[in-house]
Amino acid sequence: MTEERSAVVVRDVRKSYGELKAVDGVSFTVAEGEFFGILGPNGAGKTTTLEIIEGLRKPDSGEVRLLGESPWPRNVKLLPRIGVQLQASSFFEKLTAKEQLQTFGALYGVSKGTAADMLELVGLADKANEQENKLSGGQRQRLSIACALVHDPDIVFLDEPTAALDPQARRNLWDVLRAIQERGKTIVYTTHYIDEAEILCDRVAIMDEGRILALDTPAVLVRGLDAPTHVTLQKGVLSIVDASALDGVEEAHENEVSLTLSTRRPAPVLSALAERGALDGLQVRTATLEDVFLNLTGREYRA
């Protein structure tokens, strides 16, 4: 990946607040059109990293290139090319969804017609004339994303867009995010939902305590983990003694409803189970980013 084709280049960026190293030597690049996720628990330094890239904060050291330019100090030439979604409540007072979009569009000299397109994109066309404070949390979040997109930027930054949303609203938002990527936008987004990063992102940077611990596609991160696959069966299909004796099973344990086998060679285990006709209630769970995080930090993931 050459730098000219990179939407974002971050080189050894550091930022401290007193004793706290909020960002402690972070480097990565984001390609044009990529869906890039920064994953980490609260306080990991995700937001500060994002704000430095957006040009809202000056890093103590290190370099940021955004579309080949420096975002700090405030780079007016760059601003129309980036879209930043802020927290769900940053709207003008008492305006309807459509008026919010028109007003934010006006800051960029965008024609009023764009507002309708954006509402369509985020699925709020029927809420065009609702005032912002009457929308649900998920709808406000989508409106907020629409406001970030209203001037048709090349890169979109989203800071925890799915935080505090119910599962249905989160899934709706995933569709919106995919639709944005299909329009050819580069998306840089932070989340503390591991499952979400795994589903949405082309590449994920796992961040904790100001540092990037790992960075790759979700599949590669998980594959490189050498974590066991968990095979779960309905309880009583197989005794725990028989299960432990199967070729490839490293460990077996049972609770009131199910029997779980851990294995690093799932193929022979599954075929052995099939031979015995013991596939009732079968579930196979391979390692997830959660296991990657556990492995990297030595502690449970706490969102």
Binding site: E54, G55, L56, R74, V76, L79, P80, I82, V84, L86, Q87, S89, S90, F91, F92, E93, F104, L107, Y108, C147, H151
Partner: peptide, 17 residues
Amino acid sequence: VSWRRKQVLRRIRLAPV
């Protein structure tokens, strides 16, 4: 104050105005 708290000011700062 309300614009600062609700980050509308930040939005304005991120726009070319």
